[in-house]
């Protein structure tokens, strides 16, 4: 792990934030490996070792199914998201990939309403280097904002 790695992971995080903030769900899916894990977990469950997630996906196909639901079946108030992601903290690297984490804050803005803090927490990532560049093999969003303001539609 060196400055170059830190730079590349920061770039990956920036690409991720750009994709979800733009609502570019195809770009979101493309940042994951085929057999990826993606979870959104209340900090309470995470710290108590309770396995329930708010969303728990175990493949890129499941992410695609969520995209279909966002586009076609879930009725909800439209809203913008804006992610502010802290610098990645690189933790360890082995054959399974590079483990790192970063703090995040997501602001939500509904049409013609004030912006609010929607969800804050920490990404726990395992990223792997692929021919296409760094990809998420695992992204677990552990959120402090355990009381969700009504519903959570888009990926965090």
């Amino acid at each position: 792990m060196n400055a170059q790695t830190l730079y590349e992971i920061a770039q990956l995080h920036a690409d991720y934030a750009a994709a979800v903030d733009a609502g570019d769900w195809d770009a979101w899916v493309a940042l994951f490996t085929e057999d990826c894990v993606y979870r959104i977990v209340p900090r309470e469950n995470f710290e108590r070792g309770l396995p329930l997630a708010t969303l728990a996906f175990d493949s890129r196909a499941m992410l695609q199914d969520r995209v279909y639901a966002i586009r076609e079946t879930l009725f909800h108030d439209p809203y913008y998201q804006r992610h502010v992601v802290g610098l990645p903290r690189l933790l360890s690297q082995d054959d399974a990939g590079l483990r790192c984490e970063a703090n995040y804050a997501v602001f939500r803005t509904k049409l013609s309403q004030l912006s609010t803090v929607f969800n804050v927490g920490r990404y726990l990532d395992r990223v792997v280097h692929t021919p296409a560049g760094w990809r998420f093999a695992e992204r677990v969003c552990v959120y402090d904002s355990e009381m969700i303001p009504n519903s959570l539609i888009y990926p965090i």
Binding site: L52, F75, S151
Partner: peptide, 24 residues
């Protein structure tokens, strides 16, 4: 059970919209 829980709750495939319609 954990995987089917994706259908329910504040982000659920079939429950997230219940909270929305109640709000409106």
């Amino acid at each position: 059970r954990l995987r089917q829980a994706n259908l329910f709750g504040p982000a659920g495939f079939v429950s997230a919209d219940d909270g929305e319609v109640i709000e409106f």
